[in-house]
Design a protein around this nucleic acid. Structure first.
Lengths: 337, 337
DNA sequence: TCGAATTTTGCAACCGCTTGCAAAATGCGC
DNA sequence: GCGCATTTTGCAAGCGGTTGCAAAATTCGA
């Protein structure tokens, strides 16, 4: 049904090569034939079949976007930025949903069947084994939101979660909180582990502050709420919590308020991500902003670079995070002179 | 780099056709050669190149998923269900982001270049012209969340928005509200128009109730909040609002509460969608549930059916919605005998 | 205007896989 | 064990493009 190169060639009265060349960047065609071809192509509504050309060029312009976080609102932003960023570069995202998927082999096969040019693994909870498996199969891969310290061979773009943990701890100390806790995401997530490590790193030296930590079962509202309810029921509530991420924070917040406690006076909460919803006035969450847009643009640039330079030396691209002050942490005490 | 059919054939000591046939359903191969081939394939880690085979079969197993709603949390659920549903059937979603896109021609080209087998347009705000353009280009297309009444030629899967408007009106009347309003999404969205039509349909006959309506600029928190603030500032607040969708409702709710009004006593709100977040205890929104899972499964089934039967007579598949009672509407008055 | 240098063009092979067709192999009944 | 029907197999062409190479056309200098 769709019109092919051959038909355009016939109509334009030129060879198939001529048509092919007018549609490939930097090929040698005279203005005259180019015009003939373009005219014919326009008349017939021809556009080249990217898949057919991929056979000979070895490039599909397909980028696999694999993720397992389809319930965290932050991922809407991720998808939006990724798809737009890829489209702007003439690339197409092939989405792979890894929910309930534990074996890299299967996803690898899905991607290989479509010979994607590169893969972006966007997840802070997927183990490094996924990105590593793709890399081992010879695919350019970048792990966005991943941990770089333990997978030195795969390109990572994201933030320094340890440093974020430190930043959260510092913010709480500066504001004078004494009984402080970490309410993390799933313990198996590298992001959780690192945030906790940085957090403890700062706080363990301070003998004056009381530190503790627990984990929620997932980065989700329900998990955050359940864990906070448990803490409240046990009667061991801290003054201030650093929560694993924003959606967890919102869950925790709801539990705190349901218990009749006020925020930030009885219990303070600081999140991480700064997803759109964190700024909604009825949420108004103080949080550490992860620069999603920069991470994603950089991930795209990197995976594209990798396509042309597959043996490129692995790197970690880390972006600084910033504290976004809203209503769930008390204000800084006035500076003394 | 990746291993090809030819290499497997050589290793297994059979012809290329034999290898091809062992990997295609229902082809005739003896057990003996099948075993030989499978052994060789396993040893070499071969998996067939879907794109190459698409050249001859005319099927890419790629389904275009086009949308423009990348900021409405409901779409996370949509993406999750779609990608999982497609994967289960051995299909792959090719995501197309139509944010800021007004011309169907460009998206059409993107889809055609990759010769997708079918397209699902998932949006209640995209004009019917998109789905129609795809259909005109000979692509199997289903418009999920679309309006069927004005595009009788394209397959639509979704809900009856007019009926939902009626349902909302009835719910408000049953509960004895007297001053009632519709706070819609963008006026250009077919979903908004239809919900309003159904709403007015029920209410206009009732001379005792006071009805009005306005529109927010988008289906978004900010738009809902802004519109509700405007209404409050003008001092013309109704007792009960039917909001365009859940995210709009949440925005409106935040404005109501900021103004010191209580919900549902001073102002009641009913949304539409029942996205995950509507059930969060700190939101607790009474809303009309749109059966997303059913809509999406049905959309997938339909687009798959369309692939094999392109001239299939167009149909609209509408799923009933249900009221989900939570905390933003007062309870039903007791039944009188 | 002519010949050499340069650019443009078409041919043909190939990318990885499928499939109609005819030949080869197998199965079956007696 | 034989002849026939049936199944399995390989050949070769083709899907829609790209590209190295050599021939044809153009450009350019003198």
């Amino acid at each position: 049904m769709p019109v092919t190169l051959k038909e355009v060639a016939e109509r334009a009265g030129v060879s198939r090569s001529a048509v092919s060349r007018t549609f490939t960047q930097g090929a040698s065609v005279s203005d005259k034939t180019r015009r003939k071809v373009e005219k014919a192509a326009a008349e017939m509504g021809y556009s080249p079949n990217a898949l057919a050309s991929s056979l000979t060029t070895g490039r599909t312009k397909l980028i696999g976007l694999v993720s397992n976080n389809f319930h965290n609102p932050i991922f809407l932003e991720v998808f939006d930025l990724f798809t737009q960023g890829l489209q702007e570069r003439g690339l197409r995202p092939l989405l792979v949903n890894l929910t309930n998927e534990t074996d890299p082999a299967h996803s690898l096969q899905m991607l290989r069947q479509y010979s994607v040019d590169g893969v972006v693994v966007a997840s802070s909870t997927l183990p490094p084994s996924f990105a590593e498996a793709f890399k081992a199969a010879g695919m350019p891969v970048v792990h966005s939101f991943g941990r770089w310290s333990t997978s030195p061979d795969v390109h990572v773009v994201g933030i320094d979660n340890v440093m974020c943990g430190r930043m959260a701890a510092a913010a709480l100390i500066e504001r004078g909180y004494q009984k402080i806790a970490f309410l993390g995401g799933p313990q198996s997530a590298t992001s959780t582990q690192d945030r906790l490590a940085g957090f403890l790193d700062v706080l363990e030296e301070r003998s004056s502050v009381n530190v503790s930590h627990t984990f929620a079962e997932a980065y989700s509202f329900d998990a955050g709420r359940a864990e906070m309810r448990r803490l409240i029921a046990e009667g061991d509530v801290a003054d201030a919590y650093f929560c694993g991420d924003d959606v967890l924070s919102i869950g925790a917040l709801s539990a705190v308020r349901d218990a009749g406690l006020t925020v930030p006076d009885d219990v303070a909460i600081i999140g991480l991500n700064d997803m759109e919803m964190a700024g909604w006035q009825n949420i108004n969450l103080t949080t550490i902003r992860q620069p999603i847009r920069e991470i994603i643009n950089s991930s795209i640039e990197l995976v594209v670079a990798l396509i042309n330079e597959p043996t490129r030396y692995p790197e970690a691209r880390l972006f600084p995070c910033k504290l976004v002050e809203r209503g769930t942490l008390r204000a800084l005490p006035p500076v003394k002179h």
